[in-house]
Amino acid sequence: MNIFRFAGDMTHLISILVLLLKIYATKSCSGISLKTQELYALVFLTRYLDLFTGFISIYNTVMKLIFIASSLAIVWCMRVHPIVRRSYDKDLDTFRHYFLVAASFILALLLYEKFAFKEIFWAFSIYLEAIAILPQLVLLQRSGNVDNLTGHYVFFLGAYRALYILNWIYRYFTDIHFSRWIACVSGLVQTALYADFFYYYYISWRNNAKLKLPA
């Protein structure tokens, strides 16, 4: 474990806490893409298949449980909770996310570290996580002005993988066995997708103005 990865995990956790805060405090999920949340639940469920078979550390197991439980809880809130589900922007959240799942799965069958059940699903979860934010970014552009908590949620979500890139650079130089090309390349693509959001987030912070993405 290194400081970059720990900071990345904490940033990821903060993003989830900010989203839970938004939903709990405002009893609303407006501006949040249910499709992105469903994709994240799928990412965690397919990546942490070894949750009960492998043991790395208490921290690793606890964080996996938190990520799986929180992502399922958010999807439940947006689909089932009688008050929250009413504020879901169903007619704006129209990204065909099934294509993202299919593309990631096909790529995982072609590009993997080892042709084994868990490895294929691990690679699938890595590719899917890289593009899972697309429905959310499209929804932000369509819904015009973005409320603060939603903006912070997306910012921390993008920042966590950027910290993981620093972690991979650090491990590349310090850990001779280290070779995570699948995670590294996907992580770069994932972070690059946030580039324009980060720019508009910075502008809104610098001008102390409401976050606004161009249509």
Binding site: H12, D50, G54, N60, E119, A183
Partner: peptide, 10 residues
């Protein structure tokens, strides 16, 4: 070794 290909990252 078994250790190497275990995915230790979240």
């Amino acid at each position: 070794s078994e250790e190497e290909d275990k995915h230790d990252e979240l």
